[in-house]
Design a protein around this nucleic acid. Sequence first.
RNA 1: CGGGAUGUAGCGCAGCUUGGUUAGCGCGCUUGCUUCGGGAGCAAGAGGUCGGCGGUUCGAAUCCGCCCAUCCCGACCA
Length: 426
Amino acid sequence: MRWSKTFIPTVREAPSEAEIISHKLMLRAGMIRMLSAGLYIYLPLGLRVIRKVENIIRGELNKKGGQELLMPILQPRELWEKSGRWNAEELGMLTVENRAGREFVLAPTHEEVITDLVRREIRSYKDLPKNFYQIQTKFRDELRPRFGLMRAKEFIMKDSYGFDVDEESAGKTYHGMEEAYRNIFKRCGLHTQVVEADPGAMGGGMSHEFMAVADVGEDVIVCCSKCGYAANKEAVAKNSSVKEGKPCPECGEPLETRHGIEVGQIFNLGTKYSKSMGAAFLDAGGEEKLCVMGCFGIGVTRTVSAVIEQNHDENGIIWPPGISPYRILILPVNITDAPSMDLMEKTYEKLLNSGMEVLLDDRDVRAGIKFKDADLIGIPLRITIGQEKAKSGIVEIKNRRTGEQIDCREEELIQKLGGEQWTLKK
RNA sequence: CGGGAUGUAGCGCAGCUUGGUUAGCGCGCUUGCUUCGGGAGCAAGAGGUCGGCGGUUCGAAUCCGCCCAUCCCGACCA
């Protein structure tokens, strides 16, 4: 993609409404713009990152047998009365009424719809287990939206719903999802702590939260830096021996207090919804049983914020390669120099043909601006084409994270980029 | 929803205390010339219902009231 053809409106100063680093950097890097409090437009660069995260999620969930579908955002009131959640204050539901006076909810979550589907379509143990998921916009009528994409009224969420024949099978699903989540967040370049959690409005039994450790996190967790043990606030409240300074229950090291951003949560729901919604099946003995359910969520847009909180420096974002909007940025220093332009086009073509996602900064602006913007938007690798070295067909490759830089002949580029030192870890 | 703060050009801000010709500055934007490897210089421009409504006054960005918006703390929450 040529920078001049896309739309990446970078700005030097972030609007004053932005408080935390990820919000400021997303605004400055031209990833998002605010429409109203808690409502954001995802610009081309921001959307590319979101899509990357979504695709990592798809890959890992599909490996676990997840089946993607898509459910309506607008849902009738009756469905929510059936589950007993129409007045569930803590869900922050946004309701609307149509011209005929019929009431709907802009879905904050989809247990009702998916369980209703399963109730009608699944009748035999032979149809189970099933694991459905979708990635779509969710609504929460947040009274106080905050921190950009961290807490928005409208956000993108991945939600999975598991249906199993019994607790044992549901437990396997649960642990499978836990494993998938670990892989997903790792591939997104996010350092997370898994903590035991309170199921809250979801109900049911066991629940774990995936916390991205960050100073701006709204949640407090107590964890052990040595063995990785971690517990959230509710768990700490229940057990007075788990707090800062006390020995870790697993290894005895002193526990520490940290802040976390909740990027994912998994729930074992038991039969709460299958009972209220009537999702039953016949087992091998011909006996009617209720599906044992689980639900599993990932805040996609929040994950993007969390990644930036964990991956930036004073100059801007440093994308983990797996979710970077582009893998490589080509930066020609002087676009009026013919040899530089030849080399630039050749390099661009070659990288595109090799399947790389390349952003070409072909803008007619001073080099300093390009360098600053390059650091700001944080593409992992930068190829600089300078006037002098271009004469002999040499480009510079620079690593955004480490700052290391090498010269490379254009012909050897593909080979070098595939080499170990440019395959960024972390 | 309780407490606090802010609202002046696309962005960042000054002016308001003590009302007084035509509302300023920096960045950005347009044009020209010179520059050109880390956010250039000079020159000439464009861009404003001073958040909105009402009030006080000869006169309001400035004082008063109500409303709206945005942000922070709290409660609540993927």
